[in-house]
């Protein structure tokens, strides 16, 4: 089976830190950053980028559409 690797980019200023992406990620890739954006929200970021499979679940549940997902076969 071809292995897939993924990565996500979070629009930091659009993120409201609702944590739904963190909760839905099956690989525990995402986490909330301890720093905040200009509105004071702890934004989501890739804490364990190595295990991301690019399943796009985080992007699908994001209410503010601030997640872009990339995926490659390796």
């Amino acid at each position: 089976m071809a292995k897939v690797k993924g990565a996500v980019v979070v629009d930091i200023e659009a993120c409201k830190g609702c944590e739904l992406c963190v909760e839905t990620c099956p690989e525990d890739v995402l986490s909330l950053h301890k720093e905040v954006n200009s509105k004071g929200y702890h934004y989501a970021f890739m804490e364990n980028p190595d295990v991301c499979t690019g399943c796009a679940n985080c992007g699908v549940v994001c209410p503010d559409t601030c997640i872009t997902v990339y995926r490659v076969k390796v």
Binding site: G6, A7, A14, K16, A56, P63, D64, R71, V72
Partner: peptide, 27 residues
């Protein structure tokens, strides 16, 4: 190396404007 336009599988549709929604987090 993964984050390249040709590898994008999910992103914001062009029909959504750039306005940040006024909804509460997680709405």
């Amino acid at each position: 190396e993964i984050i390249k336009p040709e590898n994008q599988v999910y992103g914001k549709t062009e029909l959504l404007t750039d306005n940040v929604m006024h909804y509460c987090p997680g709405c």
